[in-house]
Design a protein around this nucleic acid. Sequence first.
DNA 1: CGAAAACCGTGACATTTGGCACTTCTGCCG
DNA 2: CGGCAGAAGTGCCAAATGTCACGGTTTTCG
Lengths: 218, 218
Amino acid sequence: MSANANRTGNAHAITVIIVDDDPPIVQSLRTILEARGTVQVVGTSTEGSAAADLYAASRPDIALLDIRMPHTSGLAAAERILGGDPNARVVFLTTFADDDYIVRALALGARGYLIKQDVATLEGALRAVMDGQIVMGAEVSGRVGALAGRSLEGGSALAGSLTEREREVAELIAEGLDNREMAAALYLSEGTVRNHISAILQKCGLRNRTQIAIAWWR
Amino acid sequence: MSANANRTGNAHAITVIIVDDDPPIVQSLRTILEARGTVQVVGTSTEGSAAADLYAASRPDIALLDIRMPHTSGLAAAERILGGDPNARVVFLTTFADDDYIVRALALGARGYLIKQDVATLEGALRAVMDGQIVMGAEVSGRVGALAGRSLEGGSALAGSLTEREREVAELIAEGLDNREMAAALYLSEGTVRNHISAILQKCGLRNRTQIAIAWWR
DNA sequence: CGAAAACCGTGACATTTGGCACTTCTGCCG
DNA sequence: CGGCAGAAGTGCCAAATGTCACGGTTTTCG
């Protein structure tokens, strides 16, 4: 609202193409991106196989590609686009964090790997991409961090700053116990177990017990 | 939907601290960042060892750390900051693509890895970080792609009798998604996702989603 | 000493989850 | 053709989970 004040004198709108197999998504993305007038959608398609041609024809600043599509995946489409123009700015859109895809996406030379859902942050991300940065959605961070950690060594993102009790609770979660069982196993009340879990989630930046188990078995 | 909307404080002035061993750089960064009034530098230091205390004292939205410093490196400083607050937004600054560090930076949970030189793009990058994105300078991208090791394995310790859809759901559970996120990811209703989960639990003799995640990762 | 942190507990509360019943649509097999 | 299984959906319900705000104890450390 009060944000007005176009920061950069960069008056010209960012041109993009959108390729996503789901028509409603294409439409809503277009509407949202064009709302402020700083992004202009110069082409759309629901077919991955059409992406490269669409790119060649419209030469947008950025190509937004859904990574999961029926026939031609976003990765294949990106490969063809980048084959034709190695300086193309390809940004992938994904509905969830898939670390297998993100590695391949980055290897291909993608400039972004964003989460479709949080649409409010899309425009800012595209602007950063125009500035030459590479942008990844927050939900992907965990997976990238885990990947990076894996490629180094076992850096337990979990064990970090947990207290002894919290570590015990985390271990039991990783064994598949529910709160009642943990309370029995540790001679605690169920409420206390819950408090420990809340502390673990807060400290580790996780959202639920399943993610604790995943982090434990990295 | 990011879960870290916590105490973001709202709004328009992003508060940052700057830690860099070179005083002129600190000064010029401060000047440039504050020029527009959208970023407020609430603390600076030329000593990596002081970073964690400075962070704890000023609680900025973002900590900007030089990655190469004489005594305490930016990585060590970040470790201490993130140890105290796992949701801290740590952004590294580097003089040029020093890709050796990026892997460790990402493993630590850094939100950004930017090139000091192109200062004009800094503010936009910080804004994207505030939106929950992770931002990397373009020069760094190559190394991340090289992380492409083997992220290929996909667990199937799960009973083989699962249908395709059920397998997909199991995989997303193992990624840590909740029902709402899975529904969005698979274009299903939340109710249907639950039905699939019930089927998985029944078929595999498990009792909750956490056990599905554990089984998936062995 | 006094402050801080770990630890244990309670109770209220909202949200998430899992189970169950029942319907619809599709493609496939005998 | 009928029957069946997978997939998708709805609605309802109870249990499990996570958060918050407390109060209490003990230990650690400056």
